[in-house]
Simulated assay, not measured.
Amino acid sequence: MAARIDHLTTSGTFTLDGGTWEVDNNVWIVGDDTEAIVVDAAHDAAAIERALAGRRVVAIVCTHAHNDHIDAAPALADATGAPILLHPDDRPLWELTHPDRAPDGELSDGQTITVAGTELTVVHTPGHAPGAVCLHAPALGTVFTGDTLFAGGPGATGRSFSDFPTIIDSIRDRLLTLPPETVVRTGHGESTTIGAEAPHLQEWIDRGH
């Protein structure tokens, strides 16, 4: 059976720089009836575990370490035995939420994670966070972008550990070079495509200055 993509939305809060906001997060599960990976274990480990329906979890992949994307990761790891994987540049952010629990492994640019016979390639896309990554699955025609690229533009860069020119470079050089029909599955909100977003790069640059 080929890998499929399951999706659930979980709700909670995002906290950084002394502020807290209510947020809805996309949690993506990629796999078949036997095994899966979880992209961003947000808010509700029990709901994610129910969606997994007993499948073996190959890995819990963190697109970045803002608390709303990782708050349920340790509980889900404990429940499933799966390793938590994070790019090392985001360890300072991770430790704001989980000071007593380190990730189990590191993500690196170009690394591949295989689940249900399908390869996902790690693409390091700093800017929203130093260790932000996307996961490109060519066989599924999709890229999981976390908070790097949304329908309508880049992720936010107004808070600590973020940088607008860096996220623009990441999107231009690492994401907009993907095939235009590639579906962009984001950390919040609706999906889009590379082709729908690519024409607006200059608008984003102008808006960000």
Rank of each mutant, 00 (worst) to 15 (best):
V115E: 04
R172G: 00
E203W: 14
E197Q: 12
L85G: 04
A65L: 09
S191C: 06
W94A: 10
D89I: 03
L8E: 04
S108W: 11
P88A: 11
W94F: 10
P180L: 14
A137R: 03
R4D: 13
N25H: 10
D68H: 15
G141C: 04
G195V: 09
N25C: 14
S160E: 13
T142I: 06
R207W: 14
G152F: 03
G31E: 05
E119I: 09
A137F: 02
A77C: 14
D100I: 09
D68C: 13
L76T: 12
H69K: 07
L120W: 00
D163E: 08
P154L: 06
T166P: 00
G127W: 03
A139C: 01
G153M: 06
P92H: 05
T97S: 14
Q202F: 06
G127L: 01
F161R: 11
E181V: 12
L176F: 15
I113T: 05
N25P: 01
V184F: 05
D24H: 07
G155W: 11
I113Q: 00
G54S: 08
A102I: 06
A77I: 11
A73C: 06
E49F: 08
V30G: 01
L93M: 15
D32N: 15
G195K: 13
G155N: 04
V133W: 01
E203Q: 15
T145Q: 00
R91P: 00
I194C: 05
D100K: 12
T192Y: 09
D163I: 02
H7I: 06
L76Q: 06
G153L: 05
A73T: 14
P88R: 15
P130Y: 07
D24T: 12
D163A: 11
T177C: 08
V184E: 05
T34G: 12
L107E: 05
A198Q: 12
T182D: 09
E22Q: 12
S162R: 10
R172C: 04
T10I: 10
V122F: 00
P154R: 09
H128Y: 10
L8W: 03
V183T: 15
R207C: 06
H87N: 13
G110T: 10
A75I: 08
D100R: 13
S11L: 06
L8G: 01
L86K: 05
G81W: 12
L96S: 04
I48S: 06
I194M: 05
E181M: 07
L96E: 14
T148V: 15
D169Q: 12
I205K: 11
E203P: 00
T148P: 01
